[in-house]
Structures are given as structure tokens and as C-alpha cells.
């Protein structure tokens, strides 16, 4: 009978337990460092993707490193058993809340959590780490002829071509052509040399 395959969660838990025992001896410390490296290799890409949507691009890698330092420091006391990945993302969220609180101390705690961009903030614009991109594209969209803009908006909102064509009284080939032209114009507009 084949040996049961350990789930990734169980392996993570074992590595985390190694990290937690780092003070037992110098040898255990070295083992713990290797265990942290293993956990890093397994989870860094996911964490980086998470941070990239919530932190300015230039700060992502710094924040990422700070979170792993917190993992090393806090794991012995605040992670015992369970899903390491879920704990890691909670550490990341708490770090982002603390960071947001430093930058906007006038906000209430609940608002800081909302800024963490799980989609529950009152002002969607505040979620945006790419506000400039939004504003630039919005400006270019306003410069499009109205029918072209409507096709772009409708299609990118997931509306079927059939529905768009009936509403705008155009044929499907016309809709395709308009969308193609609109995309080219938007691309040219956002990439104008004087920007």
C-alpha cells in the first residue's frame, strides 16, 4: 500500500515548526533558517502578486521583505498549527494595515482595513495604487468619438456583441471594426511622446 501523500499544508506546518524551534541550539537555528527559505520559496510568488495590487510598484519588494522578516520574528509566538499560507497572508494584511495607519493616522481603524482593498472601502479611488493610469486612460476615453467609446465600455464590461449591436443598431463586423479602432486610438493616446 502506498504511503499517504502529505498535503502541502502539512509540509508547511512542519517547516513552520522548525522555524519556531530555532532557539533550541545553533544547529536548530541553521535548520530554522533553511526552513524559512523553503517556506519563502513556496509562498513568495503568491505573496508578491498580492502585494503588487495593493502597494506602489516601487515599494513592493521592500514591503515583501519586511513581511518575511515579521514572519521570522513572530512565527514562534503567533503561529502554532494550521494553515501557514493563511497565516502568512494575515501577517501581510496586518503589515499593510500598519503601513496604511502610518501614512494616514487620521483614519479610523476600520477605514485602514478597508484600504487594504478587499473591496470594502467606501471610495474605490482610494484603492488605486495606479491612480495616474486610471486618470490617463479616462482622459483618452473621453477623446474618443461617442460610439467608439460605447463599444469599448460595453464590450469590456462583458456585454455580448449581439446585445451591443442590437442596441447600437450596427452589424457585428462593424462592432468588431469599431472596437479594433478604439483600441488603437486608446493605445496611441496613452503612449503619446509628450506624456
Amino acid at each position: 500500500m502506498a504511503a499517504p501523500v502529505e498535503s502541502p499544508e502539512i509540509r508547511d506546518e512542519q517547516w513552520a515548526a522548525c522555524v519556531a524551534r530555532r532557539e533550541e541550539s545553533p544547529e536548530q537555528r541553521r535548520t530554522a533558517q533553511d526552513a524559512l527559505r523553503t517556506l519563502y520559496d513556496r509562498h513568495a510568488p503568491s505573496l508578491l502578486a498580492f502585494l503588487a495590487a495593493r502597494v506602489p510598484r516601487d515599494d513592493v519588494e521592500d514591503v515583501h521583505q519586511a513581511i518575511w522578516e515579521r514572519v521570522w520574528e513572530r512565527l514562534p509566538d503567533s503561529f502554532h498549527t494550521g494553515n501557514f499560507r493563511a497565516w502568512l497572508f494575515q501577517v501581510a494584511r496586518n503589515y499593510l494595515i500598519d503601513r496604511s495607519r502610518r501614512r494616514r493616522p487620521e483614519l479610523l481603524a476600520a477605514e485602514h482595513e478597508a484600504f487594504l482593498a478587499d473591496g470594502r472601502g467606501d471610495d474605490p479611488a482610494e484603492l488605486l495604487v495606479e491612480r495616474e493610469r486610471r486618470d490617463l486612460l479616462r482622459g483618452c476615453l473621453m477623446r474618443l468619438e461617442a460610439p467608439l467609446a460605447e463599444v469599448v465600455r460595453s464590450r469590456l464590461a462583458g456585454e455580448e456583441y449581439g446585445s451591443i449591436c442590437r442596441r447600437m443598431k450596427i452589424t457585428t463586423p462593424q462592432a468588431h471594426k469599431m472596437l479594433h479602432r478604439a483600441k488603437n486610438l486608446l493605445h496611441a493616446c496613452v503612449n503619446k511622446p509628450d506624456r
Partner: peptide
């Protein structure tokens, strides 16, 4: 790494 940019573009479009 592009989800933030994608979301910004969605907010611009509609």
C-alpha cells in the same frame, strides 16, 4: 503583478 493596473483601467473604462 498587473492586477492593480488592470483594476485602474476598469475604473477608467466605466
Amino acid at each position: 503583478p498587473d492586477l492593480g493596473e488592470v483594476i485602474a483601467e476598469f475604473f477608467a473604462i466605466y
